[in-house]
Design a protein around this nucleic acid. Sequence first.
DNA 1: GCCGATTTGTCCGTATGTATC
DNA 2: CGATACATACGGACAAATCGG
Lengths: 241, 241
Amino acid sequence: MPKAKYDHIYRDLKEKIESEYYIYQDMLPSEHMLIREYDCSRNTVRRALAELAAEGYVQPLHGKGVRNIFQPIEQTSFTVGGIESFKESAERNRQKASTEVVQFAEIMADRKISRKTGFREGAELIYIQRLRFLDGKPLILDHNYFLKELVKDLTPEIAARSIYDYLEGELGVTIATSKRTLTVERATQIDEKYIDMNDYNCMAVISSQTFDDNGVQFEFTQSRHRPDYFRFQDVATRRKG
Amino acid sequence: MPKAKYDHIYRDLKEKIESEYYIYQDMLPSEHMLIREYDCSRNTVRRALAELAAEGYVQPLHGKGVRNIFQPIEQTSFTVGGIESFKESAERNRQKASTEVVQFAEIMADRKISRKTGFREGAELIYIQRLRFLDGKPLILDHNYFLKELVKDLTPEIAARSIYDYLEGELGVTIATSKRTLTVERATQIDEKYIDMNDYNCMAVISSQTFDDNGVQFEFTQSRHRPDYFRFQDVATRRKG
DNA sequence: GCCGATTTGTCCGTATGTATC
DNA sequence: CGATACATACGGACAAATCGG
């Protein structure tokens, strides 16, 4: 839990934007006003504003002010956001989650697995296959590869609850960065075995490499979602030049 | 073209990382070293490093240094990155692009369109439907809605080349922020009419709202990609708390 | 285990440039 | 033209984490 000043300001402004205390298309108070309001330096308010801009909440206009461009979105299907566990995502989407561990095995990364996952050849891994239920329906099939030395005593029982809780809570691992690639792939026989595909012949696939706070990759995951329960959101800003 | 100092440092470091002058998992020079190398203040190198961290190039480790975690990725299919036009994406992916304008019409946003696109009800829009070819194959179907007052004299001829070139070059519009949602939807009859679906019954769909530098939304686009020529990349960092 | 050197994280105050009005 | 607002940059201070002696 960060007690940093900029983070407090960031959260406070974010809350005021989401609650529509500041309204869409209006200007926020100027940096100078915010300095007085939060009793801090200009750099500190600018840092908070920069984070909000990066997330698409506000847009700074040179010489004019900072405009609120946040619009609430309807969340029908399962929306994927930042780095979070399935459990966290489900809670954010207000759905009941459960998990069934289908496979649990120790393997060694051969050339093929190494190229696919980004782990070095010869690395000892734990491979887990899990079926995810939302409100009782099997909708997501996860294939996880964890670096064995970092998840030491991982068991199928833990995998059925939340591996991230275990890593962060028990092992003190800090999850830092995740690189994700999103593709659409044909449904495999395995997919169809576990998930009622409802006539779809494709899956929405998120492949991700996750790094801890030492910069070592400890996870590769391929998460295969049934198309109609999948939504991914993103904000991009254009780099000039 | 930004001539800012931090941007120069950012580009220089990025190039050195991509060219593997700095190698994977090694530490970059410390901030103090970079200050001397670039003859600037600490804030300035830190800003450049922060951008690289946000893009997943490096990972800062408190008390230790900044680690290079960049791995080059194989780019087989059509990879979507930041905010860019189809033309720019095609060039980045080294593919030959062409466009066919299927529809070009002026419409008014009714309730349904307003909810779908984010434009206010009653707004006058230009609707364009375009088929995109990569290396001669029709693979993407775009549905664009532009705010009419901002794209004044847009013609089908311009739409066949690059609307972004026209907006940025001719009209002086600056594209700033884009909010995107990615879903997988069943292929429609329209999709199948123009695109050889190769047995797929789904499309990868990117819906985006784009804002100019005044913070007004001037575009809504739904871009429907054939699944096997689609790839979307993203880097997420975990917020503690 | 402690101490000091190094390195990143946060915050401050100030100066100057540029865009808007 | 001057006032306001955001953008960039500098230098300094202290905290927190890491590492070697």
